[in-house]
Each structure stands twice: as C-alpha cells, then as structure tokens.
Design a protein around this nucleic acid. Structure first.
Lengths: 204, 204
DNA sequence: TGCCCACTATACAGATCGGTATACTCAGCG
DNA sequence: CGCTGAGTATACCGATCTGTATAGTGGGCA
C-alpha cells in the first residue's frame, strides 16, 4: 500500500515534516543526546505541543530519523544498482560508487547508524533493530551480488567487502586520509579479481 | 619523563583514580552525553566536590578518559609488536592479533574513539585531537611497518590495512558477523602477499 | 602539637531536560 | 455558519544537568 518512492513523507503534516527534517540534521551533526526537543521545535518553527502531538516522544523521532535515513539510502542504492546494468561485477562496484557519493554530500560525519549505535546502549531501544538491520542487510546484499556474479563461496568475500565499506565510512568521517571510499572501491576490485577471476562475472 | 609504563595513573589521588575508572566504564558503555557527573561520583564512591577538585570539569574527564585509553592501547600494542619478533610480516599481522584480543575483552561496543567522535561535534573540543590523532597514528604505524617490510609504496597498502582494521572494529561492535577481526587479519595476509610477495618480508 | 591533604556530607544555584496543559488563531470545507 | 485539523503562544511540571558552597572528618607527617 502507498506511493512507493514518494514514501511516507507525504503522510506527515507540514509541521511534522519540518520537525523530522530539523531533527535529522541536528541528530546527525551534533549527536542524539546533545539535541533537545526545544531546539528541534525551534529549528522547525514549531511549538513543542505540535512536536508531541505528531510524534509522542523524542524516542519516536529518533526511530523515524534512522528508519527514514535507512530507507533513503536503500532507495538511493537501488537506483545506482539499476543504472549499473546487469553485469554482476559492475553492480558490486556500483555499491561503492553510491557510497562514495552518499558519503561526500550526506555523511560527512560517518555512518549515521554507527554513530547512533554509539549513543544507544540499550538493546531494547526501538532504534536498535533499525541500526543492526541495515548492516545485516548490507552484508546480505554483498552476498547476493557475489552469488549472482558466480562466486562459489560468497560468504567470506562478502564479509571482506563489508569491512572495506564500513572502514571507508569511518575513515571518511574522521578524515583520516583523502577519499577513502574510492580506495575501498579499488580494493573491492582486487577482491573481485581474486574471487571471480580477473574478468569473471563481468564479460562472461 | 617519568615512570614510563606505570603511567600517570599513580599521579592521581585514590579518589581521582576511582573517578576516572568509573567514568571510563560508563562513558564507553552508555555514551558520554548519557552519563552525568553525579552518576560518575556515585559509582566512584566520591562526592562531586572531590570530582571537581581533581578534574575541574566533565570535559576534562572526557579528555583524560580518551587520552588514557589511547595510551593503554598503544602500550598494549607495543608489547604485542615486541613479542612478534623482528619479521616485518609477522609484526604487521600482530597488530590484528592485538586488535582482536583488545576488541574481545575491552571493546565490545566498538572503537571508543569513533564512538566519542559521534558525540563530539565541535572540532575545537579538546578531545578532538586525541580522537583524530589515534587514527592518524595507526595509519602511520601501518606505513612504517610496511616500509620496514620492504614495500616499495607503503601508502596505498597502509590505507587498505586501515580500512580492514576500522571496518572490523565497527563490525565487531555491531555484531554483524562472528569474529570480524580474525577475518580482517586473513585479508591483511592477502594484502601482504600482494605487496610483499607470498613470502616477502617474512623470511628474508 | 599542629598543619595539610584527601575526602565526606549536604545543600544549593541556574540552566536545561522530556513532557504536559490551557487557550487561541486560522484556513479549508460541507 | 460551524466544524475540524494544524498550528501558534505561553506557562508549567518534576527531574536532571553542570558546577559551587559550607562545614566537618581523619590520617600522615614534621
């Protein structure tokens, strides 16, 4: 049910949209605990009454923030995978291309899920499955893509791609060296060369 | 100058040591912003007066927490590097062995520096150089070790080892799959095979 | 003996936290 | 006209935040 790509955004009242937009920016830039609901309401041009009428609690805003960010990343990635064409090797590398662009203009401070996990200790927190779920989804995606590329045992290679991907996001967030996601993509190529053969999956 | 491995810990009064110990545990397990000074003092069996007499501010406790953790990791790593012997290849791999043990019994929630960075937005925060400094130190360490192993161009390989290392810590903290640091070590071996040759650096 | 240091106990200040309450405006719509 | 949904403005709740103040205890040391 619903307008697929338009998403649930349109279900929100204008004020609620501004609340979520402001909260998402503030949570990512300053951290979840460092941002109070008064600031969110002020930045959204909304009173706390409206904020609580729409979301009920700060915790729920956090869940919406992470869920929607997860959703937007998956949609962004899906478009890039479509654009990459059918060649399995290129599809895998397009994940890193997508991550690079995403990191450059939406993730200057690293992965929002990893950062949120640093602040949410309680595994019972409703945001916890969203965070862990995205990482497991990414691992499963790498496994699927590798299997489609003809890898005999996609598990280990998928885990390697996972490490390169996560490591690159951290290095990008802390600005350890220039363009770490591009470096991760080059290493992913080497992994694919080993697993699939130098032209495996690509031109077969 | 001073008692090298004994560290600055002995310079602290008994109460101050307990404060720092309690704060370090709480900051790591629950996050920095989620922990107040009242809780720290209570857990340390100390009054807030003592806490402020010794440290002056919560911010300073945060700086001490990260600095000392950084210091302990470097000391731990130095001992593992010594124990690894002179063979450059084994020395590089011993970094991952050290990281594995460190992660298993002191970093169940991922890298403390990365987690702290998620909460500290201000680059002017006195803890910021400690965080970024450790990552740059690790990158420089990989470069040094690779150069000692005879790598012609240690830069790119060092960055790859960095991505594997950071990615493994994240995967470990989020429990994405089992024993990611061991997996990172195996991939590091493959990197060394490529850069140094299958027995390069090791037996020469 | 007398001093100093580390520490305890208690209370409080000023600000901010998440969350709630009352009362009002205003546009769209049947 | 009158209703409803969305939002505004303001005031308040109890709790907690960082940080400070006053007063007192007890051991080591010269």
């Amino acid at each position: 049910m619903g307008a697929s790509r338009a998403g649930r955004q349109t279900e929100l009242t204008p004020g609620a949209q501004r609340v979520l937009q402001a909260a998402s920016r503030l949570f990512y830039e300053r951290g979840i605990h460092a941002v109070g609901v008064d600031l969110i309401a002020a930045e959204a041009g909304v009173t706390k009454k409206t904020l609580y009428d729409r979301f009920g609690s700060k915790e729920q805003i956090v869940v919406e923030y992470l869920s929607r960010r997860d959703e937007r990343w998956k949609e962004f990635l899906a478009r890039r995978l479509d654009a990459a064409g059918p060649a399995p090797r290129e599809r895998i590398l397009s994940v890193f291309d997508a991550a690079r662009e995403w990191a450059q203009d939406r993730s200057a401070k690293g992965c929002a899920m990893v950062n949120a996990h640093a602040e949410i200790s309680d595994p019972e927190h409703p945001a916890h499955p969203v965070i862990v779920g995205q990482k497991q989804w990414m691992l499963a995606l790498f496994e699927d893509l590798l299997a489609q590329a003809g890898a005999a045992d996609p598990g280990p290679a998928a885990r390697t791609l996972m490490l390169l991907h996560e490591g690159a996001l951290v290095a990008h967030g802390l600005d350890v060296f220039a363009d770490p996601v591009a470096h991760a993509r080059r290493q992913a190529e080497a992994v694919l060369d080993t697993v699939l053969g130098p032209d495996g999956g690509g031109l077969r």
